[in-house]
Amino acid sequence: MRYVTLLVTLVGLLGGMRSASAAEPLPHPQGAVILAVTGNVTQTNAPGQAQFDKAMLEALGKASYTTSSEVSATPMTFEGVPLRAVLERVGALGKTIKATALNAYQISIPMEDLQFEPILAMKVDGRVITARDKGPLWIAYPRDAHPVLQDAKYDSRWVWQLSRLHIE
């Protein structure tokens, strides 16, 4: 039996920090942009999109869990930011998220998937992931916590090398 550890720490719970709401202006990235969010969003910081660097994403909160995946025989620990936090920050209004990877792979993810608390992983097993090893962002689901997630339909939504989210 596999054990899944789910840890979600929102910025608002971290010592004295406050979380930014979708009503506050989205700052401009100071580092390399690793994620762009387009489509039906209310907050942008570039023409037609919300751009995030690593620090901006990390400021939205932290989440981690240990779970199996289609790409590994043993459970791995994924650490990153809750996808829900990113969508809330940009004021996403829609029913579908089109996720696009650096290699142009695209998949539509229904907003209902947020019930499973997927994350945008930036670390796997304590190591920062790079484009060479499925990073800088990898959509991960707590596969072992929900038997329904152990299906090819959900496996296809584990987008590695994520670069863009489009809200429809």
Rank of each mutant, 00 (worst) to 15 (best):
A131D: 12
R164A: 13
S68G: 14
K54A: 14
A92C: 08
T77Y: 03
A145Y: 04
R127F: 11
R127M: 10
V128F: 06
D155M: 07
E70M: 12
E112G: 09
L57C: 04
G80D: 06
L57E: 02
A55F: 14
V124S: 12
E70G: 05
R157I: 12
Y154S: 03
T96Q: 13
R132P: 05
S156N: 14
F52L: 02
A145C: 00
A73H: 08
L149H: 03
A73S: 09
Q150A: 08
R157D: 10
V33E: 00
F116K: 01
Q49E: 15
F52T: 02
V37N: 00
G39D: 09
V159W: 15
W158L: 03
L60P: 05
S69A: 09
S72E: 05
L87F: 10
P147Y: 09
D151K: 10
G48E: 14
W158I: 04
V148F: 05
P147S: 06
L83Q: 07
P25M: 05
P136D: 10
S156E: 15
Q49L: 14
P25N: 08
H146M: 01
K153W: 15
A121I: 01
I109F: 15
I107G: 12
Q43L: 07
F52H: 05
L60Y: 04
F116W: 08
L149S: 00
H146E: 03
V90R: 03
T77I: 01
F52E: 01
M76S: 09
I129H: 04
G31E: 11
